[in-house]
Computed example of a mutant assay.
Amino acid sequence: MEILASRVLLRPADYDRSMAFYRDGLELAIAREYSGGTVFYAGQSLIEIAGHGASADGTPPFTGALWLQVRDLAATQDALRQRGIPIDREARREPWGLHEMHVSDPDGVTLIFVEVPDDHPLRRDTRG
């Protein structure tokens, strides 16, 4: 199988509220807009906020989490606070060596902001 492209598709209960969160709160750049939604750049991935397709009871079908790597986790945490975004779990170093902080989008989707320290195995060159 050859995968040509991918993105995370979210179907929020309230499109405008989620747009404000991702566009204004997180300040993600818009990759494209279409009549039924908006696609944002998220590093090497895309996040699409669809203006259609929420479940009948308003519960979003996505139950996972978004892993978003940032350069400076402390600065990211401060910036989100200044924009009024509540921090669900403060930035801290995890037992596996990454620095992580959690926030939730308006529908309860967990966003895990991650800083990879210089000494972490993800930064090591594994070529011989």
Rank of each mutant, 00 (worst) to 15 (best):
L4A: 04
A5E: 13
A5I: 09
S6D: 06
R7N: 13
R7E: 06
V8D: 05
V8Q: 09
L10F: 05
R11D: 11
A13Q: 12
A13W: 13
D14H: 15
D14S: 13
S18N: 12
Y22I: 01
R23Q: 03
R23V: 05
D24M: 04
G25E: 12
G25Q: 02
G25I: 00
E27I: 03
E27W: 11
E27F: 06
L28A: 06
I30L: 03
I30P: 04
R32D: 14
S35H: 08
G36K: 15
G37Y: 08
G37I: 00
F40S: 03
F40I: 12
G43K: 07
Q44L: 07
I49P: 00
A50R: 04
A50Q: 07
G51M: 08
H52F: 07
H52A: 14
G53S: 10
G53I: 07
A54S: 03
T59P: 06
T59H: 13
P61H: 13
P61N: 14
T63P: 10
T63L: 09
G64V: 05
G64I: 09
L68G: 01
Q69P: 04
Q69C: 08
V70C: 03
R71A: 04
D72R: 03
T76I: 09
T76A: 03
D78L: 06
Q82H: 02
R83F: 05
I85N: 06
I85Y: 06
P86T: 07
I87F: 06
I87Y: 14
E90H: 13
E90W: 00
A91L: 05
W96N: 00
L98V: 08
L98P: 01
L98S: 11
E100M: 04
M101E: 13
M101C: 11
P106Y: 09
D107H: 05
G108H: 15
G108M: 09
G108E: 13
T110R: 15
L111H: 05
F113A: 01
F113S: 00
E115R: 00
P117G: 02
P117M: 03
D119Y: 02
P121D: 06
P121W: 04
L122R: 15
R123M: 08
R124L: 08
R127C: 04
R127A: 08
